[in-house]
Amino acid sequence: MTLSRSLSRSLSGLFLSAFLILSASAADARQMISIDRPEVNMRTGASTRDAPLWTLSAGYPLLVIGQQGQWYKVRDFENDEGWVYRPLTAKKPHHVVKSKIVNLRSGPGTKHTVVGKAEYGEVLRTLGRRADWVRVRTSGGQIGWISGRLLWGW
C-alpha cells in the first residue's frame, strides 16, 4: 500500500468519525422554548385560522420539533404536538412536573428537608441545576429542589 493511499484511508476514517460525533451531538441538542404570555393557544396548524387544541399558561415548556415561518411545531411533556406563534414564546427555562406529586426540598438531595410539594402538570421556573437536581420556583414563589427525573423541560 502506498503512503498516499494509507493517508487517504486515515483521513477518510477521521472524517467519518468526526461526522458521527457531530451527528450524535446534533441529535442530542434540543431546542426548548416556554410560553411568554399569560395564555397562548396551541393550534392544529401554523395559522390563527387553525383550530386551538388547548390553552397553555405562562412558562409552559415545549420542545421545538419544526418551524414554518413565524410558527413553531412543538411537543409537550405528554408527547402531544401542535403549533404556537413564535413571538409569544421565550427562551426562559422552565420545567413541568411529570409525576403525580413530588417533594420540593431545601437542598439537592433526598437527605434535605421537604419544604413543599408540587403536582403533576405544575409549571416551575428553573433557577439552577446541581447534578441530577433542579432548583425551581413555584407559581406561589416557593423555592426548592426537585429530582430532575421527576421533571420535564430544560
Rank of each mutant, 00 (worst) to 15 (best):
K91N: 14
V136R: 00
V40K: 02
S99Q: 13
R130N: 14
D132A: 15
R30W: 02
K111M: 09
R125I: 00
I101E: 14
Q31P: 00
D76C: 05
K73H: 14
R43L: 04
Q31G: 00
D80T: 12
T89R: 06
G45Q: 03
Y72L: 13
G107W: 05
V97E: 00
L127R: 01
V123I: 14
K117Y: 13
A26H: 08
R43F: 06
T113E: 15
V40N: 01
F77R: 06
R86C: 04
S34K: 05
R125G: 00
T126R: 09
A58D: 13
V40T: 08
A131T: 14
L53Y: 08
R105H: 03
G109I: 02
D80N: 14
A46P: 15
H94C: 06
Y85V: 02
E122Y: 01
V74A: 08
V115E: 08
K92F: 05
K98G: 07
L56I: 08
A26M: 08
N41K: 09
M42V: 15
G66V: 09
L124H: 01
A90Y: 04
V115G: 01
H94Q: 01
P108V: 02
Q68N: 14
P87Q: 08
A118N: 04
V114W: 02
W83Q: 06
R30H: 07
V96L: 06
A27P: 00
P93R: 03
T44E: 14
I65T: 15
G45W: 03
P61G: 05
S47A: 12
P93A: 04
K91C: 01
Y120M: 13
